[in-house]
Structure formats: C-alpha cells, structure tokens
Lab assay of single mutants.
Amino acid sequence: MSGNGNAAATAEENSPKMRVIRVGTRKSQLARIQTDSVVATLKASYPGLQFEIIAMSTTGDKILDTALSKIGEKSLFTKELEHALEKNEVDLVVHSLKDLPTVLPPGFTIGAICKRENPHDAVVFHPKFVGKTLETLPEKSVVGTSSLRRAAQLQRKFPHLEFRSIRGNLNTRLRKLDEQQEFSAIILATAGLQRMGWHNRVGQILHPEECMYAVGQGALGVEVRAKDQDILDLVGVLHDPETLLRCIAERAFLRHLEGGCSVPVAVHTAMKDGQLYLTGGVWSLDGSDSIQETMQATIHVPAQHEDGPEDDPQLVGITARNIPRGPQLAAQNLGISLANLLLSKGAKNILDVARQLNDAH
C-alpha cells in the first residue's frame, strides 16, 4: 500500500501541473516587456503551470559599433537563445518575429505568432524639431536608422535628408537623439515604442507609400524545439490566425527572394473581405531603383483552434497545428507568387547589386 502511495506522490510531482516552463529572452527592456506579455497570456491559459524567465545577451546586443547589415552573420539576435533551447536550458524563446530568419536551424520551429501590433515605422524627432515631419525637416538634416530597408525607401522619398546608421537598443538610440546634436530624427518601429509606453515620442507614423515595413514587423514569434510536442501544444494558444497568415505570406515572399538583413526588402499586408493583399518591394541601397507589386488571394481566416493538420510540417519556419492547413498554404503560395513576379521584373539584379555594395563598404 505504502509503495503505491509513493508512486502516486511521484506521479503528482512529475505531472504537468508541477512543471516549471523556462522562457528565454534577450536582456533589453523591450525584450523583457514583450516576454512578460507572452508569459502573462500563458499564465492565464495555464494557471497550474509556473513560468521562469531567463534573460541573456546576444551577438546583436554586444556589437554596437557596426551596422547590422555589415556584421555579416545571420541570427544576430537569436543564436545564443537557440543555443540555450538546444541544450534544454529553456523550453521556449520569445523573439520579435522580424529577427527570426525565414529558414531556422534544424530542430527549431516557430510554435506561435502572437497578435500583431502596429507594424509601421515611426519617426521620433529631436526636441528642437518636435512638430515637424520628415518632409518639413531642414535641408541636409541627419536621420538615424539601423535599417537598409528604411534608408533606401526614405532616401527616395525625401532626397533633402541624409540617413546615417544608429545602433543600440531603444533606450540607447533615444538617448543619442536627445543628448547629442548629430541626429534631427530617428526611425523606429511603432510597436516597440508603444510597448515601452513611449507613445508621446511618436512624431509621425510612416504610411506604406512612404515606407513599407519589415517582414514580420510588429509581431512576436515564440520559438521552440520542433519535436517538443508538449510545448508546441502549450504555445499553440498564442497563435493569432490573421497575423499568422499575413506573416506566412510575408516570410514566403522574403524567403523566395532570398532577402535578408543586408538587402532592402519591404512588405505591406492587409486582410479585407476574405482577401489577403500582399505588397512587396525591393530597392537599391540608395533607393534610386525599385520594383513594387501587389497581389491578392482569397483566404478564409479560420477561428482559433479549428482542428489543424496533425502532421505539422513547417511552413517558412512556422508550425501551427491548430490552424487549418489550406489557408496557410494559400498564404505561402501568395508570397511565392509575388516573389516570382518581382524576380521576373529584375528584382534579383537589384538585390545582387545591393548585396555587393553593402559587402564592399
């Protein structure tokens, strides 16, 4: 009898209710805020589980004197976190989706994509230029951005401005803007500013005609071990179906173009009346040469937790077992079709030249 009692006690200790789920994140304040929001949602869904947040620095956090596009290494903000995932030191990792490459290392998958916040870019102005827009900034004003995508589009749109690289986390960039006289304004992701509670610093939100956004911008991705079915089931509740389908289309477009950090590629997606609209573009580094096109596809946005595919093969690095396969494939095909259209119009040449120029500098 006593033996059975011990077995029952052991089973209770090993039951999922007692389990601590370890969540990996970057150390920056924004990353911690984003991770806290994901953990809060998981806690609400699984009140019996405990969650421990483990923060670590990544290569991208450490190399702050070089433009991201020049470092010449993929997975700048993800490699150390993936290493911890691989060694079973954490069970899942919360990322900004735009930091996750469209091809993940073997053994990993994006197990959830959370509801997207505003994906557009924002302009934050130096205190002396508050009330201005990019259009009304004085001639030769210097605007800071760490992104080739932003610089290429904005140089084309605002030729009277000069664009220079600015690195560091959000706090560091804002301090550089406010305390030094080098920059009249800087460009940042609206979602990051909003998550930090800095709505009052948003001086201008850039519309798609001015600057399309990065693939996955404004959404959070939760990376897990691809074979860890328990954790895949656990994080599945975080999937937002519309965000998922938009981001599958965007990531398929980028992957098929073979774009990345070192080339200016941008997108804009919208879901309306059962249609998914995808606009994508590529630019030369100075913005003088560009190709942009829009395509659409009829896609039914499923309700969360309709029964999805059981075999769960990944699409552009994403596993969404609780979302039907048909809409996911339709979104992926839309991204591939748009990429093929741009490639047929000469996108590869623009991107190759951009890559060579970026590598040469």
Rank of each mutant, 00 (worst) to 15 (best):
H95P: 01
G274W: 10
V90A: 07
L174A: 06
I323H: 07
L177C: 07
K79S: 14
G236R: 13
Q153F: 01
K132F: 14
A303N: 15
V123S: 08
F129R: 06
V316Q: 01
G346P: 01
P324D: 15
E117K: 10
A122D: 05
L232N: 13
S147P: 01
Q181I: 07
L285G: 15
L341D: 15
L278N: 01
L134G: 04
S37R: 11
D230H: 01
G197N: 04
A122L: 05
D312K: 01
G281A: 12
A320W: 14
Q328L: 08
V224F: 14
S165Y: 10
E86P: 01
Q29P: 10
A360N: 01
E52F: 11
S141A: 13
T58I: 05
G236N: 01
V282A: 09
A270S: 07
T172G: 09
R150F: 01
I63D: 01
S284I: 15
G317F: 01
I248R: 04
F125Y: 15
M56N: 06
N169D: 06
I299M: 15
E80C: 11
P138Y: 07
I33M: 08
V237Y: 04
T78D: 06
A297N: 01
R32Q: 14
D121E: 06
L100A: 04
D230R: 13
P302A: 12
V38M: 07
A252E: 08
E250M: 01
Q217P: 07
D61S: 01
I205D: 13
L81Y: 04
D352G: 01
L315G: 05
P105N: 06
L193R: 01
S288N: 07
D352Q: 11
A252F: 01
L245K: 04
K140M: 10
L276A: 04
E80F: 01
K176Y: 10
T25S: 11
G335K: 03
P127Y: 01
L30A: 01
D228G: 12
R32H: 07
V282C: 08
K79G: 12
R156K: 12
A347K: 01
S45G: 07
H300R: 05
S37K: 13
A320F: 03
V20D: 05
L85E: 03
P127L: 14
A303S: 10
D36I: 07
A303L: 15
E310V: 09
R116K: 03
R246G: 10
I110A: 01
E73L: 06
V103D: 10
L193D: 03
K140R: 11
S45D: 12
R167Y: 09
G24R: 01
A84I: 05
D121R: 01
V143A: 13
H239S: 12
T190S: 04
F77E: 01
M212G: 14
R22P: 06
E139D: 13
N118S: 14
L338V: 01
K348G: 13
D240Q: 14
H120Q: 09
S337M: 05
I166P: 01
K345Y: 14
Q194V: 14
N340I: 15
A249T: 14
A191W: 01
Y213V: 01
L76T: 10
K157Y: 12
E250R: 01
G72R: 08
Y46S: 09
S184I: 11
Q292P: 07
G281I: 01
I113E: 01
A214L: 03
I336R: 15
A226Y: 13
G326S: 11
G274H: 05
K70W: 09
Q153H: 06
S284C: 10
N200E: 07
V316Y: 01
V124T: 06
T35Q: 01
V124C: 09
V123E: 01
V143S: 03
R321H: 11
M196P: 01
V123I: 13
S288Y: 06
D178R: 03
I205M: 09
T279D: 04
K227R: 08
L245W: 10
N169V: 12
H95F: 12
G48Q: 14
R156M: 14
G48F: 07
R19I: 12
T41V: 05
E306M: 04
D99N: 04
L137D: 03
R246I: 06
C261L: 01
Q217N: 01
R22M: 05
A320Q: 03
K157T: 07
A152R: 11
S75F: 01
S57W: 10
M196V: 11
S75N: 15
P241D: 07
G259Q: 01
L100D: 01
L170E: 07
K272W: 15
M271P: 01
F158R: 09
E310L: 10
H95R: 01
R32L: 08
L177Q: 05
K227L: 14
T145V: 10
H305A: 01
L245A: 14
T269Y: 01
T133R: 13
V267E: 05
Q296W: 07
V316A: 11
V235K: 01
V142K: 10
L244N: 05
G144R: 07
S284Q: 15
K128L: 11
D65T: 09
K132Y: 11
G197L: 04
I54D: 06
L137Y: 04
L278E: 01
T66K: 01
Q34S: 10
T190C: 14
T145M: 07
F129D: 08
I21V: 13
T78M: 04
N118W: 10
E82F: 15
G281V: 10
R175P: 04
F77Y: 08
I166H: 09
T58S: 10
L234F: 07
E82G: 04
